[in-house]
Design a protein around this nucleic acid. Structure first.
Lengths: 151, 151
DNA sequence: GAGGATTCCTATCTACTCACTAGGATTTCG
DNA sequence: CGAAATCCTAGTGAGTAGATAGGAATCCTC
């Protein structure tokens, strides 16, 4: 699961993307997206350090996207807030780390499955931009009721 | 990322699947898969309660799969150890929960993307069984070196 | 029925992370 | 100068992860 931090980050960035290229203070975003103000402040600092947003201080300061919304992917943001997309370190590219207790990584059945998952997840999250999300993702089987199996 | 618990659980189950339908004590599995003994004991208790393994006590007791390895999926195991596969509660089927701060769930851009991810992940993990994993997953772009982008 | 090997149950511990808050320094504009 | 904003440093409380300990219950062999 994504952390609250990650979810808030994406919501805030979508807020900015929707109003591109305008600039907004943390208070405005926090109110618009129902995010605790001080927490969002910390999150926006991370986004700035990672080059996702640009900030100006002082009176009428605020944050805006550092790049057009179609050049910011979900994958990039999530890696900043939550780390690897992969389910195991040994199946990650950006955060690769071998498992201490693994005897033969190349033959590891677990790793092969997890690598497959990582590839699919990355295929979506690294290709979907903020702009895409605002346009709508296209036909997705959306889940409006609780159903047994699958989630 | 998967918890250590989840990773150990899958490793232990693959150990049993490889030697189906034999039965093994925690000590043997722990040694074979480099898992802390007492921790594995707790994990196997979860697996038993969930109906994944059957256990017999006493001298020459141990654990074995409660079903053939081709009827146990990765998804089922991971949900026991780590909860939802989905990245957001509102995009999960088995663990659905709405986001408190969400104003219009149906229109939520975030949820649509996350639902798509969940569908893909579930497509793999709920279809891949322990037996599949032992056979090898087929052609997967495996990641033997650290590469920028994608993980 | 004694003894050893095993699972099972309950309890506890330490370290860490998450989610959030507080308070104030700094910058900018009017 | 003063209001409004970001920025910085800290800290807090709750929860969880990853184990470990100790012993009760169970079962087989002899």
């Amino acid at each position: 699961m994504l952390s609250q931090r990650g979810r808030y980050a994406l919501k805030a960035l979508l807020f900015l993307a929707r109003r591109e290229p305008e600039q907004f203070g943390v208070a405005a975003i926090a109110e618009g997206e129902q995010i605790p103000r001080k927490f969002l402040e910390a999150i926006m600092t991370d986004m700035r350090k990672a080059g996702i947003v640009e900030s100006t201080r002082g009176f009428s300061g605020g944050h805006r996207l550092a790049r057009p919304a179609d050049l910011i992917t979900f994958g990039e943001v999530i890696r900043i807030t939550d780390g690897p997309l992969a389910l195991l370190p040994c199946a990650s590219r950006n955060f690769y780390k071998r498992c201490e207790d693994c005897r033969d990584e190349a033959a590891c059945a677990l790793r092969q499955v997890m690598a497959k998952v990582r590839n699919e997840v990355s295929e979506i999250l690294d290709r979907t931009t903020l702009a895409d999300a605002l346009r709508g993702v296209g036909p997705v089987e959306l889940l409006d009721e609780r159903v047994p199996e699958g989630g």
